[in-house]
């Protein structure tokens, strides 16, 4: 399937992850979130932006365990725990946050 955003066709795979990561934009994330009945708040963006930075640096999407730990280091323990992350992203930080962030599915995530 595909999204049309600002005149750009953004194609996704069968699980909804963007095929060409360079076509990502904030608008794409917002459209994806709206489809899930999720309103993106500043707290969501903190995680999404972290994921994009992590990918830029390491060229992979982090495992959930690694994401949780790194968020804890950066944003504090009240955010670096799975309860917080699952409240923000009820479908799971990997399946939902990585998808909104335009990343591929994390390695080892089935």
């Amino acid at each position: 399937m595909a999204y049309e955003v600002n005149g750009i066709t953004v194609e996704t795979d069968e699980e909804g992850y963007i095929e060409d990561l360079s076509k990502w934009s904030k608008e794409v994330a917002e459209i994806m979130a709206k489809e899930d009945d999720c309103e993106l708040t500043e707290e969501h963006w903190e995680i999404i932006n972290f994921l994009r930075e992590y990918y830029e640096e390491f060229q992979i999407a982090p495992a959930v365990r690694v994401l949780t730990k790194q968020i804890g280091k950066r944003l504090g323990p009240e955010k670096g725990n799975s309860k917080y992350l699952y409240e923000l992203f009820p479908y799971g930080p990997a399946k939902q946050a990585c998808r909104y962030a335009g990343l591929p599915k994390p390695t080892g995530c089935v």
Binding site: E57, F58, Q59, I60, P62, A63, V66, K69, Q70
Partner: peptide, 14 residues
Amino acid sequence: MKNFAPTYRALEGY
């Protein structure tokens, strides 16, 4: 092709 050399730097976090 996938440029995976930077990924070795992520191992510490794992």
